[in-house]
Design a protein around this nucleic acid. Sequence first.
DNA 1: CTGAAAGCGCTTACAG
DNA 2: CTGAAAGCGCTTACAG
Lengths: 345, 345
Amino acid sequence: LSDGSFIATDRPRATMRDVAALAGVGLKTVSRVVNREASVSPELVLRVQRASAQLNYRPNLTASSLRRLNGRTATIGLLVEDIANPFSATLFRAIEDVARERGTTLLAGSLDEDGERERRLARDLIDRRVDGLIIVPAGADQSYLLDEQRAGTGVVFVDRPPSLLAADAVVADNTDGAASGVAQLVNAGHRRIAYVGDFTTISTARARFAGYEAALKDAAVPTADALVRHGVHDAADAEKAALELLALEHPPTAIFASQNLITIGVLRALRHKGQHRRVALVGFDDFPLADLVEPGVTVVAQDPATMGRLAAETLFRRLEGDRSPFRELTVPTQLLQRGSGEIRP
Amino acid sequence: LSDGSFIATDRPRATMRDVAALAGVGLKTVSRVVNREASVSPELVLRVQRASAQLNYRPNLTASSLRRLNGRTATIGLLVEDIANPFSATLFRAIEDVARERGTTLLAGSLDEDGERERRLARDLIDRRVDGLIIVPAGADQSYLLDEQRAGTGVVFVDRPPSLLAADAVVADNTDGAASGVAQLVNAGHRRIAYVGDFTTISTARARFAGYEAALKDAAVPTADALVRHGVHDAADAEKAALELLALEHPPTAIFASQNLITIGVLRALRHKGQHRRVALVGFDDFPLADLVEPGVTVVAQDPATMGRLAAETLFRRLEGDRSPFRELTVPTQLLQRGSGEIRP
DNA sequence: CTGAAAGCGCTTACAG
DNA sequence: CTGAAAGCGCTTACAG
């Protein structure tokens, strides 16, 4: 064990050639042993393994994939909104578990709703020759990936479908799910139901707003522009928007929030105003501890673990040669009644 | 836009050679343009760019790093406990932000406290020739990385220091932080303070337990084995352990939890038994919504964003040639009093 | 069962 | 300013 000073021998890494020389065999024999090809005599296998261990040899995967016929790197890329968001983190973990079974490693990045960054990071992953990409798209146009698809890279979208590109996608039942959440509020007796949602450039935000409108229409509840807030993206925005709604002359008696951070922000505003037991709240997308606050937060729960698993399985099927038509898989949501959505006006 | 059928031209990807041929220049000239080397005539630059665009050329980063002298791949590897845990996810995001400024991409994996998996995944990342590794170690021996360090790979540990290996590390002030949390409970008047903590194989769990013991000793409060539960790793374990503690003949009047999932599990048990306003609770590591439950959960908050940033900055300094002695950076924790820790016996 | 030669897509070292 | 040759560490295609 060192005394803490920096170790910098910069001892060069042993190559296959070095192992071959030490073992007294040809380069190709070392390659066979490393790749566990059967046809090597036990004695040579042993000599190669000894030399490998002695030199602490580690194969260079990037070099091997260069010459390999299929060019596969056993790497896939994942682009999400923000890895620090629990939805994205759960997606990552589910995809990681599927990838691990295939000996595949994940490159990942956060897009922060920036379409330009999406293109830049996707290009970066392509330049590293990932076998496939799983993307929560931020931009409004994914046609830049067409040539990539043609070159054989697997491309699967998750959470949001692609625009201007045909590809596989795994999404939640955003419209129906949102409608079920709003219907819950209607059934509790509410008529003044506010909507606090994300940028309308985001397809899921549009779909959820459509569900909100549909549920109101179904119940013959008139919509009111004053109760609708688009373009709210994080918890701080949402808290502000909710405070404004509560300050209206005719404030809402219930609020529907289009994603987890918005729900949390609205919740903070309700707490701040002491209205959390009086104004009903339903959020889209579940979040940790939603059941432990008082009252518990009623949510339309998505299933990000299933969405991630399905996206990864779809990608690997494509990489294994599946050429069937593209599919859009819809993962059901589930209304979890915990109290906040059952408050009556 | 396609009709939804699978596109599979498998049009081969254009290479630098193809671009050179189409532009009517030498291979090296294309390389110069791609790498933005100055000494190319404007006319040739234009021809190369036209040909590149026409062929939808994308450079192969793995091929370029192969021949490049420093062998750098502009990729770093991150191994955490579980990317779905908010602590790990925040760490990832902070490291990602530093890496992005350096044009570097992240490969990441979850270890689930499995030392064998740590070695396997670390080897996998090494075989992909990452420039550096940032690791939350799961195993009890990181000496397997010594040859890697010598070969020039940057290795930085975060959250937990390495064992049997000298390397840079960024950690929280686990012992002092835990002691401050337990001191809060002592100051509120408690004498029967339980400890619910993780596996003692985890160095941070040991350090936090040491803080618990030190705070009790400082206050001349005798320790009681019946009030100490080690080996609790997730929320379900913690809920069970807390229920057992509450069922003791002389149950604790306060509980100290050694990490975020344990705190949440203990909280569930207290709720379940209707004891959350009677039994005090302090947790190590903050978590979302800890301030929104009632009473708010008093925690010893870590700063995973700062820890991740410092770890990444340390790694990049090493990659840029810093040869100073290894350092262990300690990031302070902060006691956040929210109510649960201020409950009196 | 084994290995020498060629080549993957690029950068390096060198010559013009 | 430009490009032909050699080589990075490996796999392929082939010959023995």
